[in-house]
Write a protein that binds this DNA or RNA. Structure first.
Lengths: 335, 335
DNA sequence: CTGAAAGCGCTAACAT
DNA sequence: ATGTTAGCGCTTTCAG
């Protein structure tokens, strides 16, 4: 690795002269600047990032903790985070908690030693279930900023980026009601998550407000990914008169649609389906699934912006919660 | 941030004593060690990673460059890389090239300044098309180790992890031939990639070896993701007698299956389909797609192992290419 | 057993 | 216009 020292020795000047020259300091003669820069270029000098980080107590690196990278929502969020961070001159160190609290703790601990300037994260399922997030407040107490997106916790006072989960499900349910649906079922693979509960509440609330709706809310909760198909099979078996399905997770809407077609339901004439997915699943469905779009790119981008603002502002400002608008996109599985 | 200096001042000992005590040095009295450790724990002291990196000229961090995180193969590879790296005490800095050569160059440049000890990457589509990888050889010339997985280049002399793309497609095609298929079509969305070419060659070779197969190889290349569905519609329109489909990318096999069913083909009686996907798509298909499994987890894990070996070995060893076995998994879309 | 000093690579205040 | 020095936090050799 080429250092300032090397350049200085070759040019018979001091290290500080070289440093200043490379920064176009007024103090250095144009001639010297040229010579220094020429040699630097020739030797492919690159300032050592680690040394600069140490000097500045600032790494320009963000720690990102993702619960499950195989979930398309999070992959897309990571995509957006990396893009915005990169644009703003930050690198990201990625940790995957794989929904485990222990891994989440470990990542926070390992990186809160000067490795990163701050964190962007979404809370692991295990931590949400245990409702134990002291490992995150610990980090905040060390004055390391954290931005939490999507899966948040009220016990943590920090910047957050969420969507209006309640409102999104409420709106989707309202739409099905407006179609005259009489037997609307909600499917959830994320019953344990904060967002899952909120979405479910939105559904229940919309139904309860509908005076001419007589069925009780019917909620199918699915615990493990492996049983999605079975559970949905059963749903149709036990509720043949279902005429509206709202799926509040990434995948079950697609599976429900596929099974419905297999069972010869007319979609959307006799049965409407609304999913909570990104566009990526559309190529796998025909008719095209109507969905609630979460604007995942905005979620990632906003998270980075909040964090960088926090890093740049000297004074302690109050935590901000940014709510990203969702959009109900009616395609071919709704009337 | 609490430092050795803080501890030293509080305890009225020197910084070096504190450092040694924390490392259980023989030189330090048990009593002092206890006092130091107690205070360190009490103040939640964590050794500054940046300072250690600078001191050791070693970051214990791997730069990972992923062409497209929205592609499930790469998400899974990243998952495996992170897992193994984490296990071995390494962090990963993730960069997403988004298939752009410029971004790839940028990431390599930005991180090759001491930020990472080495790289694991798969080559961006744009770089593969241009067949221009000097930015990668540049890094190697700076004695920074690089491991390339999946999409490789013969122009680069470094450790590589690949699958037997030719053999995998060859085997799949052979299987379709053994079923007695007479009109086997290959679908590719990755015609520009090294792996795409190899897989195509495997298909062609298998057909050419089949003396009783009379049709010419038929290859459908799809340039953009948006047109997968159209292209496949056309495939069925122009080749109604197709009785075997082999898809060499992540998604087109699923789409083909879905369209085939829509068009009332009997799968697998009249038409067999083999995809090149991971298990994740299975929940979206019925019948379950037969696939070539790439053992993506092994690919990621091996990449990390090769890199760390390279980092730990002093002497220049010859580059290694590790080939991960693929497996043809016959499910419900083949006889 | 403890401490002083040098150095990793860089910057910046302070000489000259 | 150029150089010296100190210091970011840590480890390690060498002195005491």
């Amino acid at each position: 690795m080429v250092t300032l020292k090397h350049l200085a020795e070759q040019l018979n000047v001091s290290i500080s002269t070289v440093s200043k020259a490379l920064h176009d300091s007024e103090e250095i003669s144009p001639d010297t600047i040229d010579r220094v820069k020429a040699l630097a270029k020739h030797l492919n000098y690159k300032p050592n990032k680690v040394a600069i980080s140490l000097k500045n107590s600032k790494t320009n690196t963000i720690g990102v903790i993702i619960p499950n990278i195989l979930n398309h929502f999070f992959a897309k969020a990571l995509y957006a985070i990396e893009k915005e961070a990169s644009k703003q001159g930050y690198n990201i160190i990625t940790c995957l908690s794989n929904e485990k609290k222990a891994k989440e703790i470990n990542s926070l601990q390992l990186l809160s030693n000067g490795s990163v300037d701050g964190f962007i994260m979404s809370i692991a399922e295990e931590s949400q279930i245990a409702n134990n997030v002291t490992h995150i407040t610990d980090i905040l107490n060390q004055h390391i900023p954290v931005v939490i997106f999507d899966r948040v916790s009220e016990s943590i006072e920090c910047d957050k980026v969420i969507i209006d989960d309640f409102g999104a499900a409420y709106e989707a349910t309202k739409h099905l009601l407006s179609e005259g649906r009489k037997h609307i079922v909600l499917i959830s693979c994320i019953d344990d998550l904060s967002v899952g509960k909120l979405r479910t509440n939105g559904y229940v609330e919309a139904l309860s407000e509908a005076s001419d709706y007589n069925n009780k809310p019917k909620i199918i909760t699915i615990k493990t990914n492996d049983t999605i198909e079975e559970s949905i099979q059963e749903l149709f078996k036990n509720n043949p008169s279902v005429d509206g399905i709202i799926s509040i997770d990434n995948t079950s809407g697609v599976v429900a649609l596929q099974k419905a077609i297999k069972l010869n339901y007319n979609v959307p004439e006799d049965l409407s389906i609304i999913g909570f997915s990104d566009e990526n699943v559309l190529q796998f469905t025909d008719p095209k699934l109507s969905t609630i779009s979460q604007h995942t790119l905005d979620i990632g981008k906003s998270s980075v912006q909040l964090l960088i603002n926090r890093l740049k502002s000297k004074d302690q400002q109050k935590p901000v919660t940014k709510t990203i608008k969702t959009k109900l996109i009616l395609r071919e599985t709704t009337k």
